[in-house]
Computed example of a mutant assay.
Amino acid sequence: MDICKLSLAVADILTGIQILIVVSFNFTWTMNSTPVELIQQQSALQGSPQAYLHFTYLAPTFLYQPAITSNASNVDYSVAIAFMIIFHLLPFMLLTASCVITVVFVYVVGNSRSNNTGTKQSQSSNNRKNKRKLAVLKTIAIMQIGFTATLLPIVVTASLFYSGHLDCDDIAQPYLICFYFSMTNSLVNFIVYNAREREFRNEIVDIFKPGYLKQLSVQSTAETPRKDEHLLKNVVSIENVIETSKTQQTRQTSTSL
């Protein structure tokens, strides 16, 4: 289970590292370019596959993203709104639905299974079960609150822009902050999977201690003779049982004769 959680955390970290690598190059290029060069870059995208997919280079985020490329007064925001629904709202709704299903499964299905057993459980057993349920509820609550907090600002900012309360001159800085704040939802996964468990935290700390791998190797080497010795004792014990059985059979045979 710890390996599974660690792999999920590493996957989230690698996603963030990938975005940072791409952004670092675009950030350097944008900061060293003049406004005229940025406009020329936008013009070079006309007729390209990115343009047909309504992708353009957004200087505020330093990434190629879906954007409105028309300069007309009556701009159709349907494509941008569709992208926001598909890439932001739909995953959030799926997450919410999965959290609700998990809560129902843990509390409703779990209680029905315990009732079907027909046995009275001890008070300590009920307390342990309630603690596990509470832990699941806390985990789901952290997931839901974390993803809501990271997603809500960018949705609000985009809604203000589409409704006309923010124009192109005012939206650059708020959108930059809200966009990269939404990227921090990977940190929520790390907290949910790892940081809440004391044993996992201690194991992560031990990994970075000097000589940790050497210590594991020494422990593995020390445990091997113990396993062999335990196996040898079992074999000797079985042989003694067989020998005792043969002796008893011999005595019974001699007595009958």
Score class of each variant (00 low, 15 high):
K120E: 14
D170Q: 14
Y57Q: 10
E199R: 07
Y193P: 01
N71D: 14
G164L: 08
T69A: 09
L95H: 10
K133H: 04
S43C: 09
R128H: 15
Q121L: 11
L94S: 09
L257T: 04
L216K: 05
S124V: 11
F161C: 08
G16N: 05
A51P: 06
S237N: 10
E197P: 06
S73I: 04
N127T: 15
T28E: 10
H165L: 03
Y52V: 00
P49N: 07
T56A: 11
Y57N: 05
V10M: 09
Q173R: 10
N74P: 06
L53Y: 11
F92N: 00
S33P: 03
T247Y: 13
I140T: 03
V108P: 07
Y175A: 02
P174E: 09
V100D: 13
A72G: 13
A51Q: 07
F208Y: 15
A51S: 13
L58D: 15
L166H: 04
E239K: 08
D170F: 04
S182W: 13
T157D: 15
I81T: 08
I238Q: 13
L134E: 13
S186C: 02
P35K: 01
D2H: 11
D2F: 13
V22K: 08
S125H: 13
V236Y: 09
Y175V: 00
L232W: 12
T250S: 10
P60T: 02
I154V: 06
T247L: 15
